[in-house]
């Protein structure tokens, strides 16, 4: 598995798109910090970008890589190596190379600016962790889609749809249902519904840091105990971990059953 991972990573990290992605974050980091000169504002803008962009890039990269590497994957399948190792290796190779671009691309400008000495270091660290989580989750989801769809165009379409659904549509439906049923007690529903969307979960993790004052304004006891203690952080993080493990498990299962 490590061998596959190593070469996939080596291949991807040298690709033009990795450079573009890395360059984008570098530029974004420098522009945000040195044009604004306000670290906490930069972190809020960055959150908006990360929560939407890392899933999208993860999805697109994951699906493109797997479709374009199909023939090479066949070659690997004929080698004396376990199937699950091939796919795990490739998956981790993609996800790691993307996460690498994210961390390096944002890390450099923020270190240059001096985030390490500031109070915002934890917020920033959390942002990177969340970005990495989202990358791993969405690469896994898109790999699953590519494994289940022989047809590239279809697979690509589904993957984008999944991203669009989780990034925008889900929240829209969520909001509409909350407003429509606001005569009922909703806090349980609210918390449960956020667990089913990794993007919402990641956002909540960051809200816990940036907007705790507003979150604690809500009356419900469940909200209070969720946001007011470490519970929210622990539950969100572990659910996010589940979100990254389950698609990988699914991926291995699908890969094992599939014909190539």
């Amino acid at each position: 598995m490590f061998k596959i991972l190593k070469y996939t990573f080596a291949d991807l990290i040298r690709s033009r798109w990795s450079y573009v992605y890395l360059g984008f974050y570098l530029l974004l980091g420098f522009v945000l910090l040195f044009l604004n000169n306000d670290l906490s504002k930069a972190i809020i803008t960055l959150m908006n970008v990360i929560v939407v962009l890392t899933p999208m890039i993860g999805t697109i990269f994951g699906i493109m890589y797997f479709y374009s590497a199909r023939e090479f994957t066949e070659l690997l399948l004929a080698q004396p190596i376990k199937r699950s190792h091939i796919f795990l290796g490739q998956y981790l190779g993609i996800a790691l190379s993307l996460a690498f671009s994210l961390v390096i691309g944002l890390g450099i400008p923020f270190l240059v600016y001096g985030v390490a000495q500031s109070a915002e270091i934890w917020d920033f660290g959390l942002l990177l962790v969340v970005g990495a989580f989202l990358t791993f989750i969405f690469v896994a989801l898109s790999v699953n889609i590519s494994l289940r769809n022989e047809n590239k165009v279809k697979g690509f379409g589904y993957a984008i749809l999944v991203w669009l659904f989780l990034a925008v549509i889900y929240d829209g439906l969520f909001l509409v249902s909350l407003v429509m049923f606001d005569d009922y007690p909703l806090d349980k529903f609210t918390l449960v519904a956020s667990m089913f969307n990794p993007i919402d979960l990641s956002r909540i993790l960051i809200l816990l840091k940036l907007d705790i004052s507003a979150l604690l304004g809500y009356t419900g006891a469940l909200f209070q105990s969720f946001f007011g203690s470490g519970l929210g952080m622990i539950v969100s993080l572990s659910t996010l971990l589940l979100w990254s493990l389950i698609p990988v498990g699914l991926l291995i299962r699908t890969a094992r059953k599939r014909d190539f």
Binding site: I44, M47, N48, V51, V52, A167, V168, I169, D171, G172, F174, L175, L178, V179, D182, L186, D187, F189, T190, L191, S194, I199, D200, R203, I204, I206, L207, L210, D211, A214, L215, G217, Y218, T219, G220, F223
Partner: peptide, 18 residues
């Protein structure tokens, strides 16, 4: 919206809300 339905606070800073 949050004044009207306080639970929606959970969607703060989401893309849809933006």
């Amino acid at each position: 919206v949050v004044n009207k339905t306080p639970e929606t606070i959970i969607l703060l800073r989401s893309f849809f809300v933006d």
